Structure formats: structure tokens, C-alpha cells
Simulated assay, not measured.
Amino acid sequence: MTIHREGFPSIAISAVLFIIINLLSFAFISAAVPFLAWVIFAVTLFLLLFMISFFRIPNRKLTVDAGAVICPADGKVVVIEETDEVEYYKDRRIQVSIFMSPANVHVNRNPISGEVLYNQYHKGKYLVAWHPKSSTENERHSVVLANDKTTILVKQIAGALAKRIVNYLHVGQKVEQGRELGFIKFGSRVDVLLPLGTKINVQIGQTVQGGVTVLATV
């Protein structure tokens, strides 16, 4: 396991706060109320360890398959439905949405190899990530990837806690399946919009792994 580069500033700040809070706690509280000082220590240690865990990158054997669309994120499948895609394709698409809780790995990965045709950031609201309107009204970053087999739109969507979406791609870039697409901080959702007729390999409620689980075959 390694720590994602996006986490270094947040972890450093958390570590400094952990040290300061506990130095003050044991200097001014422990003598009078030792139990409270240890509670503060336990809570702040938990928060520091959570911060480290949030930015983890586990060691995995990534799936590489030209005939497959791989899940771009860890989490739970919360939506599989046909929808009108109005941002880029302007046609009917199959939408598969993956909800990422704060406990999930938050690295986002390219579902396919190909070329970036579209890359656009949208300001928006911070509705809870499972809200039906979060796909179109929340802050989000949309990317269209295409190859000779398929073309898909991937949306990184902010949730009620997610306040920063990071996207590493640009239009015209050639990308590889499983490589990093971006990162979302603190709870979020990723939508994948696929052509009608695409065979979906996941089910509602299924727990998936980014870069590993086959979402669909093309």
C-alpha cells in the first residue's frame, strides 16, 4: 500500500494538529481529568489514521481488457438505468453510478484505453451523492473517452462532503486503461454513461473495485 500524492498536504496538517492538540491536552487536562485526555488522544488518533487510510492506494492486479469497460472507482453500484445524456452525446445512454463512501479508496481510473475527446469542469451544488439530481446539478467533472470499440462519458461528481475534484486528463491525450483519471476528496460518486446495447456486468448493490471489476463488455 502507498499514499496518494493528493493526500500529503492533508495528512501533514492532520499530523501537526494531532501533535498540538495532544501536547496541550496532556499539559493542561491530564492532571485534572486524565480520562478526558486519553479520550482526546484516542479520537484524534482515529481521525489521523482515517486521513491516512482515505488517501491509500492498495496494491492490486489491475484488469486490462480491450473488450471491457472497467469500474473507474471503488464503491457500491447504486444506479443502472437508461437516461437522456444532454451534455455531450445528446442521446439515450445506459448510466451506471458508483457511490464512494469516505471509507472507500478514492483514486479514479480510466475505464478504457483510448483518446480524451472532451474534458469539462462544472460548478454546482453539493447534494448527497446518491441524490438522483446529483449527476446533473452537483459540482462535477466530465470526461469522454473513445476507442475503436466504444465511447463513454465518465462523470466525477462531488457529494455533500466532497469539496475538491481533481482530474488529470486533457483533450487529445491518449490514455491507458487502469491509469489514474483523477481523485475526489471525501465521499462522492462516479457515473459512467455507455452506448445502448452495452452488456452490463454489475448489479445494483454490488461492491466494486476501481481498475479491477469489469463494469461492462463491448
Rank of each mutant, 00 (worst) to 15 (best):
T2I: 09
G7F: 05
G7T: 00
F8S: 06
S14D: 07
V16D: 06
L17F: 05
N22R: 11
L24C: 02
F28N: 06
A31G: 13
A32M: 05
V33M: 02
F41V: 12
A42H: 04
V43L: 10
T44S: 14
L45M: 10
F46W: 07
L48T: 02
L49M: 08
M51W: 00
F55K: 01
I57S: 03
N59T: 15
N59M: 13
K61V: 12
L62H: 00
V64E: 09
D65C: 07
I70P: 00
C71R: 00
P72A: 06
G75L: 07
K76I: 15
K76Y: 14
T83F: 04
D84V: 03
Y88P: 07
K90V: 07
R92D: 13
Q95R: 10
V96Q: 02
I98R: 01
S101T: 13
A103I: 15
N104M: 09
V105R: 05
V105H: 09
H106K: 10
H106I: 08
V107T: 15
G114K: 02
E115P: 04
V116T: 05
L117K: 13
L127M: 10
P132H: 07
S134G: 06
S135E: 08
S142C: 11
T150G: 02
T151S: 06
G159D: 02
Y168E: 09
G172E: 07
Q173L: 13
E176K: 04
L181Y: 02
K185T: 10
G187Q: 15
S188R: 12
R189M: 14
G197M: 06
G197I: 05
T198L: 03
I200E: 11
I200C: 14
I200V: 15
V202E: 01
I204G: 14
T207R: 12
Q209K: 12
G210A: 05
T213L: 01
L215N: 00
V218R: 08
V218G: 12
